[in-house]
Design a protein around this nucleic acid. Structure first.
Lengths: 179, 179
DNA sequence: GTCTATACCGGGATAGAC
DNA sequence: GTCTATCCCGGTATAGAC
């Protein structure tokens, strides 16, 4: 419900009704509305961390090929994907309930992706002249942006095809151009 | 104010106070709150259309180099940039006040960028084996995503440097690899 | 075109019984 | 742990005077 209507657009009464309890019953568990939001964010993060772990367990060479699989999975969970996009936008303003959380999260995601790139460079399978942090920022940006366009207009944007296409772009972009 | 707090998070009273009039005075001009939103969106679009016109007036070869200039301009108008990000996220759900507007807008932006790529291909200055529409989707996605990361954490993400870096990526990506 | 006054609803949250 | 009842605020919008 946060994904569909945003944090502000969702009322405790709606959530309580859908959960089959009353409003005070809901507040008994989460204290207040912000507490509910944080609980929802934590649950979503569990999901994405599970994927990160899975990814780090793979061989570095296979990680790029895992991107479309990531997209396919997200497509099945459009609600969670939308939740993330909506909450990030609602958290852009400093001081909003989830702001610091998403700031930290992006810093950490950039660091993880940058590390992956450094590893690939050290192994000699990625060009030396790319700045790992800049490329990490760019990769996350593209994946986020593709997701937004897909969520906005799913009939026009095929998210799996788009991510597959971008994975090929990345392969050309990062690969050592040995003649 | 819509940029900072979103559509739902902004009250007519706040806007009226800031405008130096009363709430009914405000409604007299825009009918209702949704009318105010549409007026704001139209104003923002005027700005971005002015840029699009400027861009189309340039030689195709210079358009890629104009990207950082676009970023520099957006940096000076962080409010407008944030407005766009926030409103798009608030419009992801079909049926929301601005949904159709942003669906149409993205379709049109993708078409314009794809046309640019086709022109470059016809002129022989871009690789033939890139799908113009897929690449257009990817380019818009990256620019949007970079903007989001910058808005969320402006001290960590340098939007101008990031877009400059991406423009170089694009140049390598699109350029004909003549040996 | 702007105001005052007001209607009316829905929001989050609390008190206290069971 | 869940309920009923209630509080109080802030929201959009309208009526009607000036």
């Amino acid at each position: 419900m946060f994904a569909r209507s945003g944090y502000r657009g969702t009322s405790l009464a709606d959530v309580a009704a859908r959960a089959g309890i009353t409003e005070p019953g809901l507040l008994h568990h989460f204290g207040n509305k912000a507490g509910l939001l944080l609980a929802v964010i934590e649950r979503r993060d569990l999901d994405s961390e599970a994927f990160a772990m899975e990814l780090l367990g793979m061989e570095p060479s296979g990680r790029l090929r895992a991107l479309p699989e990531f997209a396919r999975r997200n497509k099945q969970r459009a609600g969670l994907a939308k939740l993330f996009s909506v909450l990030v936008a609602e958290s852009l303003e400093p001081g909003s309930p989830g702001h610091q959380h998403f700031v930290d999260r992006y810093r950490s995601m950039r660091a993880i992706v940058a590390d992956n790139i450094r590893t690939a460079q050290a192994a000699g399978v990625a060009r030396q002249d790319v700045d790992p942090m800049a490329k990490a920022t760019e990769i996350l940006a593209t994946l986020d942006g593709l997701q937004t366009q897909w969520l906005l207009d799913p009939d026009t944007v095929d998210i799996v095809a788009a991510v597959e296409s971008y994975a090929r772009t990345l392969e050309r972009d990062l690969a050592c151009g040995l003649p």
